[in-house]
Design a protein around this nucleic acid. Structure first.
Lengths: 191, 191
DNA sequence: CGTTCAGTTGACTAAGGTCAATTCCCGTGG
DNA sequence: CCACGGGAATTGACCTTAGTCAACTGAACG
């Protein structure tokens, strides 16, 4: 619940008890049933969330085909950050794969806090920096690895995810077809 | 020169003249000859730069093969931001493709400024956010496009770059071999 | 003129995509 | 408890694309 959020935040910035109280006034908690959408394509993302419990994925829907692009786990932030920052329409969907609980803050409240509390600005800087580092690494590894290598590093680095999602989602996440992944697995099992 | 830097910065944050003076005390200008390195693999990136004039690229060197990953233009920031932030060794090279002039700030000075001037923190938040948005888009388009489509969108969206770099660099940037690009061009010319 | 290196072309190979058929798995209902 | 239905996963046949390696062309430069 909110406890976890506070713990994670305090790893990034030091808020006094009063600062925390001010901050937490802008927070709300929302629950999502499995299958519900945090955000739909075309919508504007007005919130940044922190996942207390549950699990989300995000995907592009192009010509009827879902292109899985990533996952959001507990103790991490969830948002379409480009849409959130640029106030632009989202190009992808974010959907709950399990019943989930998310702590939300609205863009307007966050931007107000930047002025009142410089530490919140520092927090957002950390978040953006970490997001950047994360996506950079994904980007680079995508270039430098074959689908087979991506599959191997996926199941070893994120086994929890790999176990709880169906294989066609994994395939899509790796940028290949279900048939392709099936063959890769077969090939690997022969080694 | 520094003028341009000031103009670009003032698009992002409003600094008073005195704030600017404090800020600019941390800045130095460095010149790079064509071929010189802004950063080498294995080095620690201790600076963020702003390109006044010139042109840089960055690439991974893996088993003797250069993997071109991107370019830095005038009026933009240049750094290996993950290395800069995490104080980790750079995994790639950044090299000047032309004689260049860069305005630099050292990590220590920047971090000090965060405490003295909250606006600088805001600046860094903007920068990180923009970097994130940029690399996210590149990442997504890489997934959703074939090499041929990537080539077409590259030459239409960045014609200046496409014209001034040799074709084997373009191929590497698109994630294909020079031969592959040669065939793509041939295929396209037949249409 | 040669030398050099980027770019092209050809022959061959391997990896995935596509489409269709089949099998597997699991939940539901008789 | 078993039979059935439907989606997920696998398999096979065939195709397309890019990789690899080697040969060749062409332009730049001494």
């Amino acid at each position: 619940m909110k406890g976890n959020f506070k713990i994670e935040i305090s790893k990034l910035i030091n808020l006094t008890e009063t600062e925390w109280l001010v901050f937490s006034k802008s927070l709300t908690i929302k629950h999502y049933k499995k299958g519900e959408f945090f955000l739909r394509e075309g919508d504007f993302c007005n919130y940044v969330g922190f996942i207390n419990t549950g699990f989300f994925n995000f995907f592009y829907l192009i010509k009827g085909v879902e292109h899985m692009r990533g996952f959001f786990y507990p103790d991490n932030f969830i948002s379409n950050y480009p849409s959130f920052l640029l106030k632009s329409a989202s190009k992808f969907h974010i959907q709950a794969l399990e019943d989930s609980s998310v702590t939300l803050i609205h863009r307007d409240d966050l931007f107000l806090l930047y002025k009142k509390q410089p530490k919140i600005q520092e927090l957002s800087r950390y978040i953006a920096e970490n997001l950047y580092i994360e996506v950079s690494e994904k980007y680079e590894s995508f270039f430098l690895k074959t689908p087979e290598e991506r599959y191997l590093s996926f199941i070893t680095s994120e086994p929890e995810v790999a176990e709880k999602i169906p294989q066609y989602m994994i395939a899509s996440y790796l940028g290949i077809t279900p048939e392709g992944l099936s063959r890769i697995k077969k090939r690997l099992s022969k080694k």
